[in-house]
Structures are given as C-alpha cells and as structure tokens.
C-alpha cells in the first residue's frame, strides 16, 4: 500500500505549484503513470480519493498510462519495451536507458479562482451604463 505515500508526494508537489496562487483551489490533477512506476491504478485512485477528501473542494484525479520506452545506448533508437525484458527492439541490445514509463508524472493542474470570478461579476454589475 505504498500508493498512499506516493499520493502524499503528489499532493506535496501540487501544493508547491499552487503556493503562488493563494486564491485558487485545485479542481483536477492530471497524472501519468507507467508500468515501471510500481503503481496499482485502482489503489492509487483509492488513496487519492481518501487524501483528496481532506481538501475543499475535493480535487479530481485524471489518471493516464505512460508507455514504457527505452533509449538504446548502442543504436540510439527509442523503442517500446516490457518491464520483464528491457531491450532495444531495433538492435536487440540490453544496454538501454528507460526513457518513459518508470515514473509518476504530474502533467498539469486545473485551478479555479472562485473569489476573483465573483469579483469580476460583481464589478460588472456595478458598472454604470454609458
């Protein structure tokens, strides 16, 4: 159940990015995980829901899959791989660097600014008609 710890790390990152937006609330969090990230999506969602419930409003999780790709240190090609056999599909070399698919990537955050939208609406109402 290390997904709870990983989701805690996700919210630490979310808070870092929203520090400069004090009036904003997080509406949704877009995350991409790969097969070598050691994340079970169902448990990750469950952990997210439980930790997100402590926030108002409750942010939504958009979870995407990232393909596992390796960059070959022999021929330079980037090809898809499976976790059990990390090799270059072009030349067969096993000396490869994992390019994608081994991480939990925070792609983007959607923020809502409830106070400022209220302020804009209110100002518009008070504007005298020309």
């Amino acid at each position: 159940m290390h997904e709870f710890s990983l989701v805690e790390a996700l919210f630490e990152e979310v808070d870092r990015w929203t520090r400069d937006h004090p009036t904003a609330v997080v509406e949704s969090v877009r995350v991409r995980v790969g097969p070598l990230a050691n994340v079970e999506p169902t448990i990750f969602r469950l952990a997210f829901e439980q930790l997100a419930a402590l926030r108002t409003p409750t942010p939504r999780l958009e979870l995407e899959e990232e393909p596992l790709t390796v960059a070959c240190l022999n021929c330079g090609q980037v090809t898809e791989a499976v976790p059990q056999r990390l090799h270059c599909r072009q030349c067969g070399a096993t000396d490869v660097r994992v390019q994608t698919g081994d991480r939990i990537l925070l792609l983007s955050l959607t923020l809502l600014y409830p106070k400022s939208s209220f302020f804009v609406e209110d100002t518009r109402c008070e504007k005298p008609s020309p």
Binding site: E13, I104, L107
Partner: peptide, 16 residues
C-alpha cells in the same frame, strides 16, 4: 475563472 497549469514534473523528484 479556470486556469490549467502545465507541470510535467516527476512526483518523487523533491524526495529524490
């Protein structure tokens, strides 16, 4: 108002 911030950050980068 709604705004989307692009992050593209490995979640474990700070811990690493």
């Amino acid at each position: 108002m709604r705004e989307t911030i692009t992050v593209n950050q490995d979640v474990l980068a700070a811990r690493r």
